[in-house]
């Protein structure tokens, strides 16, 4: 499903050339649930950005469902993000002036997929995450856990085959963390491929496989 072959990423900071990834190799099977662990600043988020085609690397190859992502032009990568990938971020990244309903519906606005009744789909997802009653609320009116559940609903609205989660429970309390992880478990059971970045071993243990990022390589 996902394959990274010798991916290297570096950037310039002033006169310094900072090497983040020094040849990452990763293979994730379809429907697999993996956790990537590593210290702060080790490049975990960089890997997630590369997996989500939000950023590009310097050398290497990225194959997603048989397609060479590294050779794609910007608009093809955008379409890939919209059709195949759902994102869940630690800071939720909801648009503040849009309602819960509008935030969840947003990926459908940009979608070329034919998904039938879009309104019903958004409602079903909000019902699944237990927030249908707050569909008109603005993000500022929600708790952290509710925001993350809205973000998960948004990530799933386009029926992606891959869910990329960057510290999805990083800003949540224990009870909310468990409810979010249960939601991930259910998604995994339904066949969604999940790649989760975390520094919390207990959270990582919920995944099928854990890989560690150390000195710019995955172990």
């Amino acid at each position: 499903m996902i394959e990274f072959r010798n991916v290297k990423k570096h950037y310039r900071s002033g006169n310094l050339d900072v090497e983040i990834l020094r040849g990452v190799n990763l293979h994730v099977k379809k429907g697999e649930y993996i956790a990537i662990m590593g210290k702060s600043g080790s490049g975990k988020s960089t890997i997630l950005n590369l997996l989500g085609a939000l950023d590009s690397f310097n050398t290497g190859e990225y194959i997603l469902a048989g397609r060479s992502v590294h050779k794609m032009r910007a608009n093809r990568r955008t379409a890939l993000r919209n059709n195949e990938i759902g994102f869940v971020f630690q800071q939720f990244h909801l648009i503040p002036n849009l309602s819960v309903y509008q935030n969840v519906r947003l990926p459908l606005t940009y979608s070329r997929k034919r998904l039938g009744r879009k309104k019903a789909r958004v409602h079903n997802l909000l019902d699944e995450v237990g927030l249908l009653h707050k569909k008109r609320a603005k993000p500022a009116q929600l708790s952290g856990g509710e925001k993350q559940r809205v973000a998960i609903a948004r990530a799933l609205v386009n029926e992606p085959s891959i869910l990329l989660a960057d510290e999805p429970t990083g800003s949540l309390d224990e009870a909310t963390t468990q409810s979010i992880l249960s939601l991930f478990d259910r998604l995994h059971e339904s066949g969604v491929t999940i790649v989760m970045i975390t520094h919390d071993i207990e959270v990582a243990n919920r995944a099928e496989r854990i890989v560690h990022l150390q000195n710019g390589v995955l172990l």
Partner: peptide, 8 residues
């Protein structure tokens, strides 16, 4: 966010 969600 919009770009991440698929806006060209």
């Amino acid at each position: 966010i919009r770009k991440a969600l698929g806006a060209t």
